[in-house]
Design a protein around this nucleic acid. Structure first.
Lengths: 228, 228
DNA sequence: GTACAATATGACCGGTCAGTCATACCACCC
DNA sequence: GGGTGGTATGACTGACCGGTCATATTGTAC
């Protein structure tokens, strides 16, 4: 963790260091990120850096903490239409948060992407339950709840489906943002935060239709199912 | 491309260089791969390296070519049940090839994974048609054909669905192999190549059921749809 | 043998890297 | 003035990097 000296710094200086670090980590994986680049970008001496942080890893986890806070902010800023979201509304919300995060903080999203690639284990086994969990287990819990609530088909292999949702969540945001950027550049500019325009909503609807059709216990009859 | 000198080398020496390179590229992204590590692992002098290759990128694309050949081999080694596979059988085949490749050549799979992360564009726009294509466009063509054949629902956003299949293909293999390794270690050992055991087939069935339900025009009634 | 071309070699060069440390600076108190 | 503790600095070290090149070795033809 950063030293007491670092927290004694005037905020302006701290922010300069942090934004230099963010720029570096967003363009280089931790492995090839450079302390020299950060200090020169931040306008501080190299010796100062080592008075603030033990090493570059120390700074890295500090930045990860900042990212985590911002991510919670984004999730909580999304409109919550009802206290108890049904299963697929919840999923939509999660994916929407990922897109929102990508738009608002592309550097943070990039850092997270680098982090995902470096953590090479695709899944791990929970020592208590013996269950195989992907990522942080959010989707695993989501699917288990969904089955209990009769929203998710019982035959779905929860562990695998959780993994699939995990990688979709990780990969879909930059893609959707790229497409949104084409059709609705006004959204990208910043002010229009939570509410997406029609084009964007259509894209989201399509994604959710695919996911819901794939996972739901009682998928709605398809739009063109009998209307061919 | 490698020099004439390189191709004049005795095969044994060439293989030693290549396997050293493969080991290096499988554990480091190109950006941080080390010529020194390769030459010391291969037991050749640094000067020799630069008589064989222009630089490390040159060697890298040479290795990519080897990987590409092996991949075609794997795909063609899969049993082809019928000349004209229907849409979802074809998809299953593609995913199965990815798993097979991961088992047989994990280093190659790792190199490809590094390559995917480095190519940061999630999709590109075809200058001729104006269509947005993900990856090499295989899935895009697959989905388009599927719609023509009445196998894929017409409402599916082809570009987005292609992207999703792309990232599933890229991510699912290590995960499935991890799970296969638990239940059926005999498959991993090598000899049992194309035919998977029951556990593995069940996993695959589940994956295909999810994908088919999500994308198909006329998904089969779910196993538990009316039998609750 | 000699001559010539192909190949092999590792010391060396300029550069970047993370991390250190003696020194300097500065604010505050006496 | 002097003393003290916190902070800032950048030259320096040793290691590694990609790439070069003069020299040595080997193969081949005569």
């Amino acid at each position: 963790m950063p030293t007491k000296t670092y927290y004694n710094l005037p905020e302006e200086k701290r922010l300069k260091v942090e934004s230099a670090a963010i720029a570096e980590f967003a363009t280089n994986p931790l492995q090839s990120a450079s302390v020299n680049a950060i200090v020169s970008e931040a306008g501080i001496a190299k010796g100062s850096f080592y008075q603030y942080f033990e090493n570059i890893d120390d700074l890295y986890v500090h930045i990860l903490g900042i990212i985590y806070k911002k991510k919670l902010e984004v999730i909580n800023s999304l409109p919550l239409d009802s206290a108890n979201l049904d299963t697929f509304r919840y999923l939509r919300r999660v994916l929407q948060a990922a897109v929102e995060f990508q738009i608002k903080y592309p550097d943070f999203a990039s850092i997270e992407r680098f982090r995902r690639m470096n953590s090479n284990h695709s899944s791990s086994v929970d020592p208590e339950t013996g269950e195989r969990i992907s990522g942080d287990g959010r989707f695993h819990a989501f699917l288990t709840q969904g089955i209990l609530h009769d929203d998710i088909a019982t035959w779905v292999d929860v562990e695998m489906a959780a993994f699939i949702l995990e990688i979709i969540e990780g990969g879909i945001a930059p893609y959707l943002v790229e497409r949104i950027g084409e059709k609705a550049p006004d959204i990208m500019s910043g002010t229009l935060s939570a509410g997406y325009d029609r084009t964007t909503q259509d894209l989201f609807d399509n994604l959710m239709d695919i996911l819901e059709a794939g996972l739901a216990r009682d998928p709605q009859i398809r739009k063109d199912f009998y209307s061919k």
